[in-house]
Structure formats: C-alpha cells, structure tokens
C-alpha cells in the first residue's frame, strides 16, 4: 500500500527553496484516503467591479505609473472543460519592482496610485479579464546579482480547483536565470503569456494567459462543471 511519489527539486540560487523544500520523496496517498485530500471551497467573496482594474485605486483616481496592460484568458481543466465561478487572486509589483506588502523591504519606490492586488471571478465560459500595470523586474539576490523576471502572481480557488502560479513575459532577459523557470524546463512555456493588441489607446498591450488546472484536484466533483 505504501509508495513514493515525486521528489521535489530545489530552485537553484533560491535560499527559501533550500530552506523549505522537503528532502524526502512525497508519499503516495492510499486510494481510500484520496478524496479527503481535495478541499472544496464553496464560498466566494462578493467582488467589486473595481477589483478587476488594478491600474488605479478607484475609477475616479489617477492611473498608476508605468504601462497599463490587459490580461485575459480562460480557466479550464486538462480536458478543456471551463472552470466557472472560480476566484482568481492577482498580485504583482509596481513598475519599479516594489510590492505594497509591508514585508517588502527592497527600498524600491512605491507608487501612491498602485496597490498591486486584484480579484476576479471567471464567467460561465471560465473566462477572466483584468487590468494591471506591467510589473518591474526586481533584484532578488543582490549578493549574486540574480533578478526575478517580470511576473504576475495568481491564485486560483473555487470548488475543488486550486492552483498558485505565476505568469511570465516572453523575452524577459531575466527569465533564463529564474529558479522556478529552471525547474520547469520546457514546460515553462505554459506559464508565458501570449501578447496581443488590446485595441485601446491607453493600454500598452494585452496578454493572453490560459490557465489549465491539472491533476485530479482540478475538477474532482462533477458538480464543479
């Protein structure tokens, strides 16, 4: 009945990964216990429409510094079935590479017009859309000059779907040295958004980022669909 699953890899040059990555292979879950490992998130917050526009603090306030971009896409499981009514929590650094989180001690400039967090729910087709500021890259390891490439954090939660991921930009010079990008190997391409013309003069670009929630947790319960 016992068995071993994946051995997780440590992200190169990532101190926190060294500190927190289990050294033992994961254990396989016995079939009789499998369902108990699928949390079901039934309650979704009531969102304000302004939460989908991270480029300003409120509709009547100035736009944040940097390039405003649109990000849109579809959430599906591996079979292409849309994940409906799922919460997407989004956070990213400002154009200077600074988060508004109190624990970001980088000293990079804050932008008084940018909080860097947003939330959207997917629609009946699993689709979503939000606006944000193209994040700046930031120096994650000053001691060795290793940067984090531009990225947008996203957390997917709803029903039995759960995924925490990051969206990356093509051709960012810092992509290649990123610890998680190195661990992803060729599959990194699934986390890189495709650029399109957002068709609005005030938006620098649009990015298509389709999210495929994999594994059995994606849509464990039929009623999710």
């Amino acid at each position: 009945m016992t068995g071993l699953g994946r051995l997780l890899s440590i992200g190169p040059t990532d101190n926190t990964s060294r500190e927190r990555t289990p050294r033992q292979p994961l254990q396989l879950i016995p079939e009789g216990a499998r369902e108990s490992f699928v949390p079901y998130s039934r309650v979704q917050p009531a969102l304000l429409s302004a939460e989908a526009d991270m480029t300003r603090l409120a509709a009547d306030l100035p736009r944040a510094a940097g390039e405003a971009i649109e990000v849109s896409g579809q959430l599906t499981d591996e079979f292409g079935r849309p994940l409906r009514g799922v919460l997407l929590e989004i956070w990213n650094a400002n154009t200077f590479g600074r988060y508004t989180h109190k624990e970001d001690a980088s000293g990079l400039p804050l932008d008084p017009n940018f909080l860097g967090l947003g939330r959207v729910l997917t629609d009946q087709d699993g689709k979503y859309r939000f606006l944000t500021i193209r994040p700046g890259a930031y120096l994650a390891r000053p001691d060795i000059g290793r940067w984090r490439p531009k990225h947008i954090h996203m957390s997917v939660r709803g029903g039995s779907s759960r995924l925490v991921t990051q969206m990356y930009f093509a051709n960012d010079p810092h992509n290649d040295g990123d610890p998680m990008r190195i661990l992803m190997g060729d599959a990194f391409k699934h986390n890189v958004a495709g650029e399109y013309d957002a068709g609005q003069p005030d938006l620098a670009a649009g990015y298509r980022f389709d999210i495929v929630v994999g594994g059995r947790n994606a849509t464990f319960f039929e009623n999710d669909l």
């Binding site: 926190t16 599906t76 591996e78 929590e89 988060y99 508004t100 970001d104 954090h153 957390s155 990051q166």
Partner: peptide
C-alpha cells in the same frame, strides 16, 4: 489533454 499550467511559488508577499 491540455498541458497543465505549472505550479509556482507563492512568493513572500501574498496580500
């Protein structure tokens, strides 16, 4: 089957 989006770290600054 569609290839799954990779999981990634949560980073230190989850809001």
């Amino acid at each position: 089957k569609r290839p799954a989006t990779n999981e990634d770290t949560c980073g230190p600054y989850f809001p």
